[in-house]
């Protein structure tokens, strides 16, 4: 690792690196001896309870770390709209924590079955057409109005392939950012997994092209994650159960160069490593950022 010039250090500090804080790490992360990170990301729904242990824990986390709130259930592309009670809870949480970033996904989650409202419990893919664009933009507007701040929208993994539509995924995200002034959260592993699952080309090359469609100023955060390898012919599942892959690190170098001001987050949700091991991954991201910055300088 090359020594970093102090001026560069200041620039690095301006692009924070965080980790996803999950249940298994709460104790370790709150130990006085724990090394710190620039921020931690919590899943909003885990802290919707009005009282009890989760609520007290949130106070401790917010006292120790800068917090990013990541929704996993808002379903911003749902034609049924975002349920008022959900938005109320989400807004209450955001107002309470005053997070550094707030994000959710370009997906749908709510719909009807036999005229009964239902939540998918998953991030379901949108069709990238004009009608869906209008739904997504309206919902993002509504949430940003409710929150009184910018929301970041993340690209998801889709396990369904659709026939060509009005936009590519990258165009769709860029357009919605322009229409609503929302920010973008680019999940690099999701881009790679989609290309691995549904194309025969070089996933890394395709993902690099995908990144070039992203408006530089709109991308405010990058997610890094790893997925469990699968047998040929099987779909890779976005399980966040592995270290960041080499391929994803390579794509990160490109993303860092293109979006030098975007925050970075290591996501690891299943088969979790130790807390120090997770922080090591964050440091690795920091080092790669620094090397890219050095090269660009």
């Amino acid at each position: 690792m090359t020594a970093i010039h102090p001026l560069k250090q200041a620039q690095i500090h301006a692009t924070p690196v965080g980790v996803g804080l999950r249940h298994e790490h709460y104790s370790a992360a709150l130990l006085p001896s724990s090394h710190s990170v620039d921020f931690v990301e919590i899943h909003a729904e885990n802290f919707f309870a009005e009282g009890g242990a989760a609520s007290r824990l949130l106070d401790q986390i917010a006292e120790r770390y800068k917090v990013s709130i990541h929704g996993t259930a808002m379903g911003l592309g749902s034609a049924k709209g975002i349920q008022p009670e959900y938005l109320k809870k989400f807004t209450r949480l955001v107002n309470r924590v005053n997070p550094v970033l707030v994000s959710d996904h370009a997906c749908f989650t709510w719909g009807n079955i036999d005229d009964m409202p239902v939540h998918a419990g998953d991030l379901l893919p949108l069709k990238f057409n004009h009608a869906t664009m209008n739904v997504l933009a309206d919902n993002i507007d509504r949430v940003q109005q409710a929150l009184g701040r910018q929301l970041l929208i993340e690209n998801i993994v889709s396990y369904k392939q659709f026939s060509p539509s009005d936009y590519s995924e990258a165009e769709f995200l860029a357009t919605v950012a322009e229409k609503t002034q929302c920010g973008l959260l680019v999940d690099l592993n999701n881009v790679l997994v989609n290309y691995h699952n549904f194309t025969n080309g070089n996933a890394l090359q395709l993902a690099r092209q995908w990144l070039r469609h992203m408006p530089v100023n709109a991308v405010k955060e990058i997610h890094l994650a790893g997925s469990t390898p699968v047998e040929p012919g099987m779909l890779i599942i976005d399980d966040h159960a592995q270290p960041v892959s080499d391929e994803c690190w390579q794509l990160f170098d490109d993303a860092t160069a293109r979006f030098p001001n975007a925050a970075t987050l290591i996501e690891w949700d299943n088969d979790l490593p130790s807390w120090p091991r997770l922080l090591y991954e964050a440091n690795k991201a920091r080092c790669r950022q620094a090397m890219t910055t050095e090269l660009m300088a």
């Binding site: 049924k80 009807n112 239902v118 998918a120 889709s158």
Partner: peptide, 28 residues
Amino acid sequence: SVMDYQSQFLNEIYHVDSTLGDKGLQVY
């Protein structure tokens, strides 16, 4: 419509037997 597509997809996830076919649906 967007609503019809989304409700139809949800209905497939909750109610359709995917064991013989659609790999994506099986994942969901």
